[in-house]
Design a binder for these strands. Structure first.
Lengths: 192, 192
DNA sequence: GATAAGTCGAACATCACTGTTCGACTTATC
DNA sequence: GATAAGTCGAACAGTGATGTTCGACTTATC
């Protein structure tokens, strides 16, 4: 698939994966994480890190790409355009609140550090799935129409993120998160 | 009130106020704002900044203290323990969503940069007002009781912050914010 | 209008992070 | 088991932030 010139060795491949894993964790839990800290977390020398990702910017972009791809897959798997909007939203929350939150946090970071105009495109592709679902719910008459649609999207992402944070700080159990989110969001979005 | 040894000169007093104003803005819109940037924003030399606030840490603490005090006053002015819980929440949102958001953001920053155990106390004093109000609403039977109270508090702060951010990015007009927040929160919290 | 208080720019030391180079070493791969 | 690919520590230069010091200057205050 990705063979530029010579094939990569197996251990290099493993290290790259370890670095991306570690970088995702580091970036999301501490946005200013240094390259040294990421290398340490990945169990890899700093030089090796730079061998694969020539700059912090490149690494961040790589992590972002990978997370966007994952988010895309997870959303597609939840089939947000199938069945009634409420049950579709339920499915989406159950399967992907965590991935969507990572995506959101990385996007915030990338926007600050890369100041990206083209980035917005890729972000849209993920956000739009949620927006489409909400619009569909409005057309079905189950979601409220008295507020701007952008605000409804914001509401979903905002509570998603809040739940993820509460899980991180131990205020909420991970297995409760989807349930609590569902109960809160469905009622908040419901049409009267 | 605060005369340690000799009285401060009027221009010094003015500069301190300008610095605190500028620091609040800088910290909330860019958490890693440098001391040089803050000094520039305050229209003051870097040395003057250090003359009044010997370190970044001290400055942040001062900004935090001031914001907590403001938040306390604003909340007290909204009389959250008077009248029905729903109208009290309405009053609180109308008068103080902006201040409460600044408080939240500064608290996040302070928690990261100062790693504060004692800070939590001061934070509590502000958060508790919201929590008390929510508990009161539960007792009155108007707010839902099927979710952890901590999550309800999180919901309020999270949407507060989301609205503030949407105002910052121009997605929401400042004069709409309170209304939109009110519509979303009252429905999300409502008991069935 | 004298004096103390305050401001400010320039320059300094220190520190942490970024990214790079080197050379020795290890390990996958054929 | 030879070779190329990959790892790694040490050491380097560059940058940008934090605090500090100095000395000249301005400005409240009595």
């Amino acid at each position: 698939m990705a063979t530029t010139e010579t094939r990569r060795r197996a251990d290099a491949e493993r290290n790259i994966a370890a670095i991306l894993d570690a970088a995702l964790v580091c970036f999301t839990e501490e946005p200013q994480a240094s390259m040294a800290a990421i290398a340490r977390a990945a169990g890899v020398g700093r030089v090796t890190l730079y061998a694969h990702f020539p700059s912090r910017e490149v690494l961040l972009a790589a992590v972002l790409d990978r997370t966007i791809a994952q988010a895309g897959e997870v959303i597609r798997a939840a089939a947000p355009s199938e069945g009634p909007a409420t049950t579709a939203l339920r499915r989406l929350l159950r399967s992907s609140w965590h991935v969507l939150d990572q995506h959101r946090q990385l996007f915030d970071l990338a926007q600050r550090e890369l100041g990206s105009p083209n980035l917005r495109e890729r972000h849209r592709q993920v956000v739009d799935h949620v927006e489409d679902l909400l619009v569909r719910g409005q057309q079905e008459g189950v979601f409220r129409t008295d507020l701007p649609i952008t605000w409804l999207v914001t509401t979903v992402y905002s509570l998603l993120h809040a739940a993820a944070e509460d899980v991180n700080t131990g205020q909420l159990r991970a297995d409760e998160a989807a349930e609590v989110l569902e109960a809160t969001l469905l009622q908040a979005l419901e049409s009267r």
